[in-house]
């Protein structure tokens, strides 16, 4: 049972991690909790479904299509709801993000109704026996795709020129501007990348749990945000670690304590971790400036 629960936890955790990455990237650069991120994830899941149903796309094409659509959506959200608010208080941007989130989820309900739909079965599910536990090819696929996307993101941020510009903006926007970096473009790009990851997460989670619905962004967004903070918000490896940690904590909470307290256990662990390490697992201690 332990091994089976561990596999369950890692699969759940990798879905959290995928969404958490988007939160952490945007936060790292403009210190904004992007509350609309969960809704982008939801839109991603639906666009993936449209690609599959209308164009008979396979899983890779569906993910790619959803990623591109959500990139555009992310840039659009940034233009409309965040850019005009640059320089004003962070909380105003937060409320604007909540506005976007309410708008998007209502829009999807209006377009297609509130009911849950499923992805058509895209390939045969094969179960592999690993010791006493079972793991499906879908679970393996999710872990692999999550890992690929995370590594790709890591490489973009650490090894490319754009990534360097992003890191510069995260450290000091004014200094970055003086170095000739177009901060606006970098912020747009960050939104695009974060939204693309959310879309990929949406499609994968949609296929794995076989459920896509308009309010799915809310809870997933909240959990992913918690995961990002748990790992140390702003840190990319932290988001991955935080996601996995939260997923495993939740599953083990159900397994060894009680399923009725599932979320309570997960959040208690979160609070405990923060009390011991106030800036998250991999967050850098904040130097208070006088």
């Amino acid at each position: 049972m332990f091994l089976q629960q561990l596999i369950n936890g890692i699969t759940l955790g990798s879905t959290y991690a995928l969404i958490a990455l988007g939160y952490t990237m945007v936060y790292g650069i403009i210190q904004l909790i992007n509350f609309a991120h969960g809704e982008v994830y939801m839109v991603g899941a639906f666009t993936g479904l449209i690609f599959v149903n209308m164009f008979g796309a396979n899983i890779a094409l569906a993910i790619l299509g959803a990623m591109i659509c959500c990139m555009l959506l992310g840039v659009l959200i940034e233009r409309i709801a965040y850019r005009p608010l640059q320089g004003s208080s962070r909380l105003s941007a937060l409320i604007s993000a909540i506005g976007v989130s309410i708008f998007l989820s209502t829009l999807v309900v209006l377009i297609r109704g509130p009911q849950t739909t499923s992805y058509p079965q895209m390939f045969k599910i094969v179960l592999y026996q690993v010791g006493p536990a079972k793991i499906s090819n879908l679970q393996i696929l999710i872990m692999i795709i999550s890992a690929i996307l995370m590594i790709a993101l890591h490489l973009i941020v650490q090894k490319t020129k754009v990534g360097k510009a992003m890191r510069a903006c995260a450290q000091d926007q004014d200094a970055a501007r003086l170095m000739g970096i177009s901060v606006e473009k970098i912020i747009s790009l960050t939104f695009a990348l974060g939204s693309a990851l959310a879309a990929a997460g949406g499609v994968l989670v949609g296929i794995y749990f076989n459920a896509v619905f308009p309010t799915m962004g809310m809870m997933a967004g909240m959990k992913a945000f918690s995961a990002a903070v748990l790992g140390g918000i702003g840190s990319i490896p932290g988001a991955v670690l935080g996601g996995l940690f939260l997923g495993i904590a939740e599953v083990f909470g159900v397994a060894y304590l009680s399923s009725s307290y599932r979320d309570a256990i997960a959040f208690s662990i979160l609070i405990l971790v923060l009390l011991i390490k106030p800036t998250g697992l991999l967050g850098k201690p904040i130097q208070k400036k006088v």
């Binding site: 909790i33 909240m222 748990l230 009725s260 599932r262 979320d263 998250g280």
Partner: peptide, 28 residues
Amino acid sequence: FPTLRLSGDYLAITTLGFAEITKVVLLN
């Protein structure tokens, strides 16, 4: 007592977590 030494968004997330815990406890 324990949480207010956290700053900014870390405090925010503990309050969010506390709210979820309260809800689950009431549900049980």
